[in-house]
Amino acid sequence: MPSSSSSIGTPLAVEVEIRREKASALRRVGDKLETLIAQLVKLQGELSTLSGWQRAKKAEEYQKLWADADYQRWCLVIQRESLGLFHHAEVDLMYPIPPKVK
């Protein structure tokens, strides 16, 4: 009967590589989300100094970035769930997405 480990408790090389790739994918999504959040924070500051059509244009840019950040957060949650992590309060603490603007 084949086993998934070369000896009890020791993972096979392929299992280690799969775990590394899962962790790497999780990190890539987290990095994307961090970048988007930083861009949102910067735009949020710019929005507070603008008015009229300039603000409207910048608000549209903000909304697009916000939607991208929300999607990346969703991807991060899916990645976490694929690893067996089902409580996501930490995600909101580590990656606080600024609120939508009007």
Rank of each mutant, 00 (worst) to 15 (best):
Met1Ala: 07
Pro2Tyr: 10
Ser4Leu: 12
Ser4Asn: 15
Ile8Pro: 04
Gly9Gln: 04
Gly9Arg: 06
Thr10Ala: 10
Thr10Lys: 14
Pro11Arg: 13
Leu12Ile: 09
Ala13Glu: 14
Glu15Tyr: 04
Val16Ala: 13
Val16Gln: 13
Glu17Pro: 00
Glu17Val: 12
Ile18Tyr: 12
Arg19Asn: 05
Arg20Trp: 01
Glu21Arg: 11
Glu21Gln: 15
Ala23Phe: 09
Ser24Gly: 03
Ser24Met: 05
Ala25His: 07
Ala25Val: 03
Arg27His: 04
Arg27Lys: 06
Arg28Phe: 04
Arg28Ala: 06
Arg28Val: 02
Val29Ile: 12
Val29Gly: 00
Gly30Ala: 07
Gly30Cys: 02
Glu34Asn: 14
Gln39Tyr: 09
Gln39Pro: 01
Gln39Phe: 09
Leu40Lys: 06
Leu40Asp: 01
Leu40Glu: 01
Leu40Arg: 02
Leu40Cys: 04
Lys42Glu: 11
Lys42Leu: 14
Leu43His: 13
Gln44Asn: 08
Gln44Glu: 15
Gln44Cys: 05
Glu46Phe: 10
Glu46Asp: 09
Ser48Pro: 00
Leu50Glu: 09
Ser51Val: 08
Gly52Asp: 08
Gly52Arg: 09
Trp53Val: 12
Trp53Gly: 00
Gln54Leu: 09
Ala56Tyr: 13
Ala56Cys: 02
Ala56Trp: 06
Ala56Val: 10
Glu60Met: 02
Glu61Asp: 13
Glu61Tyr: 05
Gln63Trp: 01
Leu65Pro: 00
Trp66Val: 03
Asp68Leu: 15
Ala69Ser: 05
Ala69Val: 04
Asp70Tyr: 11
Asp70Arg: 15
Asp70Phe: 14
Asp70Thr: 09
Tyr71Trp: 10
Tyr71Asn: 06
Arg73Ala: 03
Arg73Ile: 07
Cys75Val: 06
Leu76Asn: 00
Val77Lys: 15
Arg80Ala: 08
Glu81Arg: 12
Leu83Cys: 06
Leu85Met: 12
Leu85Lys: 14
His87Gln: 11
His87Phe: 13
His87Leu: 08
His88Met: 07
His88Val: 00
Val91Gly: 04
Val91Ala: 06
Asp92Lys: 15
Asp92Leu: 12
Leu93Thr: 08
Met94Cys: 13
Pro96Thr: 11
Pro96Asp: 08
Ile97Tyr: 03
Ile97Arg: 08
Pro99Ser: 08
Lys100Phe: 02
Lys100Glu: 04
Lys102Asp: 07
Lys102Cys: 05
